[in-house]
Design a protein around this nucleic acid. Structure first.
Lengths: 211, 211
DNA sequence: CGGTAATCTAGAACAAGTTTCAGACTTGTT
DNA sequence: AACAAGTCTGAAACTTGTTCTAGATTACCG
């Protein structure tokens, strides 16, 4: 579980992802598609490696070469979905007056999207929080994507201050954790909404004029 | 995984925990001890049900009668540890001026305690966030315990307002999620400290005079 | 005490994630 | 075109969480 990171790198580029041939790219895409498909049904548990391999028309060993564990696979699936969402969100920027409002609006939009595929959301979020150190790079990519989405929503003029970055980090924490409580049936949709709105008030606290 | 909740109920009392005989209580304690012991070594992965059973001097089937899954076991372990921590914290209340300071101080104290047993922390927190609906009642108990600790730290005069409860919920979200990023090596101790301090500022926002 | 239901034990069996391996197939090179 | 290196396949094996079963033990009731 340590070395052997030379496998088919994700679409992101941390160390130096070896270029994928066309057929490899296609395989990778089939795998991710199968993963999302199965996840959309029964969530985390329904994503069974043998089934993913079969649905993607790929040998089990190959699946493991592309994604060294189930968690890696699901985190990569999340990366994929997040990318979609990011571009979708960019088409229609949030309309709120203040940064806090815009961030809350954006997150609620994302939340509604997740509600349409709760099982998929379950699989991705559970994988994300269950990931151990061996998945850190991939989880970090997801984190950066999320940060980018939030910063986008804030619509800052210049570069964010340290305090603003802290606030964004806390918002992300809340976002993930609130999703989990919702997915595990311990919080209602309304509850999640309140939590998001509550944490977004932190942004006001870090606005340039505040201190 | 559905019914069969008639097993040995946790120390808490939701439905109507059947009273445990002395030997049963002892068994339960041995199991929790073995669990914490193994977790203190290798974390989540090191808590193997067969090993827990053996270390506790109990058959595998019995272990499963007491705790219907590994996650149940670890969440119960967390309940146990939290209870310790709560009583410990109560002995020396935080000294900060404001509620926000006191909460941050308390959480940092808890954090330092976790740092002394990072593997144990890993096992408990991973179990907590990985728990699915079947563990909701137990996770909820942990959540209530955490809330109690935070409210204690705030040192309120009367009953907390709705806004304050929201703030506490967000603090809990941040607490759990920040712990995870630390445990998976994606955030430093200093980073966690900053996040905690940042989110605690929300408390000021919900103070009676604020609005 | 004797009987009966619940509990406990030992161990096999099953499920799904992960690893491994021999052989077939691709790709890139000369 | 032939070769070497790297990749993919199919299938078995291994690990660990979970379930099941048959037979002891224990707890409780009269």
């Amino acid at each position: 579980m340590t070395a052997d990171a030379k496998a088919a790198g994700a679409g992101t580029a941390h160390p130096a992802a070896p270029p994928l041939t066309e057929r490899q790219e296609a395989r990778r895409r089939r795998i991710l598609h199968a993963s999302a498909q199965l996840a959309s049904r029964g969530g985390f548990d329904a994503v069974q490696m043998r089934e993913v391999a079969e649905a993607a028309g790929v040998a089990l060993g190959t699946l493991y070469r592309y994604f060294p564990s189930k968690v890696h696979l699901l985190v990569a699936t999340m990366q994929d979905q997040l990318q979609h969402m990011h571009t979708t969100l960019r088409k229609r920027p949030p309309a709120g007056e203040t940064p806090a409002e815009r961030v809350a609006e954006t997150l609620m939009r994302a939340f509604r999207a997740l509600q349409r595929e709760p099982h998929l959301a379950d699989a991705m979020v559970r994988a994300l929080t269950f990931a151990d150190r061996s998945v850190s790079p991939e989880v970090d990519t997801v984190s950066r994507l999320t940060t980018a989405i939030i910063l986008d929503a804030m619509g800052l003029d210049g570069r964010p201050t340290a305090a603003q970055l802290s606030a964004v980090r806390v918002i992300e924490h809340t976002w993930h954790s609130a999703l989990i409580t919702w997915l595990s049936g311990r919080a209602s949709i309304a509850q999640v909404k309140i939590d998001i709105e509550t944490v977004c008030r932190l942004i006001d606290l870090t606005a340039p004029e505040a201190a």
